[in-house]
């Protein structure tokens, strides 16, 4: 059994990423469970997707201290879900901070870099993916999810390979999104 927790901000595409992990695992004959945040929080709030692969998981949600991997779509969101990470677990995180509207109003001083250093200080195996660079090179932030999966797969921490994801992109996504996502996948993997 292994658990992957994806954390981000509503609209960042965590749902598709969790679906890809689950579908690729199922293709190999594994059982998959996932759980999503749906509703009000999708409008710019914090969202999480729980992915549980294999036998012996009862709850649809990953218990705290049990995630093998955290995929953080945003530095602060990765820190927020840290209590879910198990000892010795790994984190893949995008460096691009998404500032909350409350920040522009009141200047909370939210700084993504502080979050990244916090993760590193905690002696966790952290892989940082340069989210800004990905957005710039692809001209869109919409494929950040695939890039993060690329990094996690290349690192060998999610039990599915770059090939598996490529296959999924080619067979299950709309053809017009194929090219950009394949590019995102390779780009993400290049950070490992």
């Amino acid at each position: 059994m292994y658990n992957v927790l994806l954390a981000g901000v509503g609209g960042q595409g965590t749902v598709l990423a969790s679906k890809i992990i689950a579908s690729c695992a199922m293709k190999k004959g594994e059982n998959a469970h996932t759980a999503e945040t749906i509703g009000m929080a999708q409008r710019g709030g914090s969202v999480v997707s729980h992915v549980r692969i294999g036998e012996g998981c009862y709850s649809p949600l990953i218990p705290k201290g049990s995630a093998d991997v955290i995929i953080g779509f945003e530095p602060g969101e990765a820190v927020r879900v840290l209590p879910y990470l198990k000892k010795g677990g790994a984190v893949v995180v995008s460096s691009a901070a998404v500032k909350p509207v409350t920040d522009s109003l009141s200047d909370s001083g939210y700084d993504g870099n502080k979050m990244l250093s916090y993760l590193k200080e905690k002696n966790i195996d952290v892989t940082v993916v340069d989210g800004e660079k990905i957005t710039d090179e692809l001209g869109s932030a919409k494929s950040l999810n695939i890039a993060l999966l690329g990094a996690a797969a290349k690192k060998g921490i999610i039990d599915i390979s770059i090939n598996d994801i490529e296959e999924y992109i080619k067979t299950s996504l709309k053809p017009q999104f194929c090219e950009i996502n394949l590019k995102a996948l390779a780009l993400g993997a290049s950070f490992v």
Partner: peptide, 19 residues
């Protein structure tokens, strides 16, 4: 059971907002 501590760093507040 062992208590799992919360991150000891202020986190961004993200109330849902109109798109």
């Amino acid at each position: 059971p062992e208590t799992i501590s919360q991150p000891d760093i202020p986190l961004p507040v993200r109330p849902p907002t109109l798109c």
